[in-house]
Design a protein around this nucleic acid. Structure first.
Lengths: 234, 234
DNA sequence: CAGTATCCGATGCGATACTG
DNA sequence: CAGTATCGCATCGGATACTG
């Protein structure tokens, strides 16, 4: 017995959608990931077994299509038209989470996850004219944290690359940040300027690069969701 | 390990929302249920243990509030302002289910569930002027079906009552319906007129009552969701 | 890289019985 | 009516190892 035993459209939609990880897999697909390991990178805690299982279930439900690209090469996962229509649901969940939850459990402060998302939200038209290497170094990570804390973001408009290993060469802009401060800025809970004033974020480099940085570093797509007027729940 | 380990608003919202039965519990609360057994009635397959557990979790998440009514009596569950903001998510899931799924798995054709929902969707301003008893009798129920198949809907504008036992007295309008046909009409997959022509629904009673019936029997809130242009998935 | 196969432990969940 | 307590199984899902 595992369905809900109802023909209500909400119930049948839940049988496709409301399983552990499934909404987040869709979120990754909406964000533009197509390859298996690319999706997995956005979901560090899922096991490959389970990710494969969920993708298969989504395929069977007609939400996802897995096919090799026309020019050959490895298979890519893409949303079908039906899958694309989950977008408002994902947006609704994100807006709700933004308004009604405390998102800064120290356990969840993952710099690698943050940086992969940052990489996808760069205003390429605001980047410095020439190739620039920005080195990010995060502090304040949770105890036992085993993932990357240093990143090199290489920008050469309109290209953006994220490296977890030193690409060599000079660093043009150094970004030192407390992970929680940076996450708060990313999610719109604090302004960039305030974080700099608090010392949560510190920039070092040529003046014009420091000035330009907050213009090309965009924020989470949910950062603009208005907060409820009252205090947050405990 | 049971969270997603991410501070993404979608991820934290999922930790509240995306568990088995939870969206359907919210659906019941949106539909106006407040008492424990009233919620349970809309979710025949959930166990009491699990329903209590889920309601507790929603309370802890600040989505639901459980309190005795001012005049005394038994506790009632109500959505908090945060809970009320799940409405667009539920609506989105329902719209998706309406557009992209086949909802008529014979196993799911539950007449009792259908009638409790019908009872909530009556155009009370279109009801006959005086007290009327409509007797519904369903056929075509799945093998082994053990729940009610005969119902008495007693309307006396603006009051509507649903009985599962014969209230006695005369029946003014007799409704004989194949459960699947009725469900299709309810969900907007077939017109009432077509179901009557096909023999899926048959009305017996005074001419004006037969005429009036399709005017006060409203449909599911999702019945009007437009269907996708292409054929449905298998 | 992109998965699958297998094993096994954790937990989710239903059934039953009990309480105020 | 509105739950809670306890038990036990079934499934979920992580770890590891293997494959094309």
């Amino acid at each position: 017995m595992n369905g809900h035993g109802q023909f209500c459209p909400v119930a049948v939609a839940c049988e496709v959608f409301a399983h552990r990880w499934t909404p987040l897999i869709l979120r990754e697909l909406f964000a533009g990931s197509t390859r298996f390991n690319e999706i997995k990178r956005g979901l560090p805690l899922i096991s490959r077994t389970l990710l494969a299982q969920r993708l298969r279930a989504l395929e069977d439900a007609g939400v996802v299509l897995c096919a090799a690209p026309p020019g050959g090469g490895h298979a890519e996962y893409r949303l079908t038209p039906a899958g694309a229509e989950f977008l408002p649901v994902i947006q609704g969940l994100g807006a709700w989470g933004q308004r009604w939850t405390v998102r800064f459990d120290p356990q969840n402060l993952d710099a690698e996850f943050l940086m992969w998302n940052v990489r996808r939200r760069i205003a390429t038209d605001q980047l410095p004219a020439r190739r620039t290497v920005s080195r990010f170094e995060f502090s304040g990570l949770p105890g036992g944290y085993r993932r990357a804390r240093v990143f090199w973001l290489i920008t050469q408009a309109p290209e953006v690359d994220l490296c977890l290993k030193d690409p060599g060469g000079d660093v043009d802009l150094q970004v030192d940040a407390d992970i929680e401060s940076f996450a708060r800025v990313w999610l719109g809970d604090q302004t960039f300027a305030q974080a700099v004033r608090d010392g949560g974020i510190r920039l070092t480099g040529r003046r014009e690069l420091v000035r330009g940085f907050p213009r090309w570093l965009l924020h989470s797509l949910f950062a603009e969701v208005p907060r409820p007027p009252q205090a947050m729940p405990a």
